[in-house]
Amino acid sequence: MTEQKYITAWCSVFNNKVAKNGMQLFDGKTVSIDEFVVGVYKYLQVQYPKFYKMDNLSKLGWLATEVLLKDNIEKGSYAPEQIAVVLANANASLDSDLRYLASVKDGASPALFVYTLPNIVIGEICIRNGFKGENTFYIAAHFDAAMMYRQVSETMGHKAEVCVCGWVDVFGEDYKAVLFLVETHKEGIPFSETNLKKLFESN
């Protein structure tokens, strides 16, 4: 429980830009969120057709996780159950809630309804990466570094060796994702409330 943990990578996606560990990787210029997420997907040069079926919250979280994990976690280096995902945001799934509700009068769509839960983005991340550990989605008005630090510490104290955690929020054209990779047995930035807050605000 008290073992020091480290932030071994972090990634931010907002303002049409993608950055990893403080270095800008991609600038989508000024475009709509729909165009931006597809731009990032193409930039990453991965083949994952399911990406196009996701809502914007899942697309954003999925893309941020791709960037976060690239060259940082080797497949098979951890058991699937040892990898946890803890995310939070302010708007839950409101972006998809409105799209779903608008569709109901013409016949409710299960493909839209399934995205009316914020934790679906966690499901998409777990499917992509084969993560089977603890997973929880919290709602908060703002990124609460103290709460995130505490919840990730609890999760890692109990079951997990690795945790993908952070903030993924989308509403209309407003979006922001800042994700952190937290590991136990690797060097990095010490995992603390202060460092989470500092890195979140530096983006």
């Binding site: 699937p80 995902v85 679906i120 777990c126 499917i127 550990g133 603890e134 997973n135």
Partner: peptide, 11 residues
């Protein structure tokens, strides 16, 4: 208590 994910399907 414990929590897990199937990593199989969203619905």
């Amino acid at each position: 208590g414990a929590i897990s994910n199937d990593a199989n399907h969203i619905s």
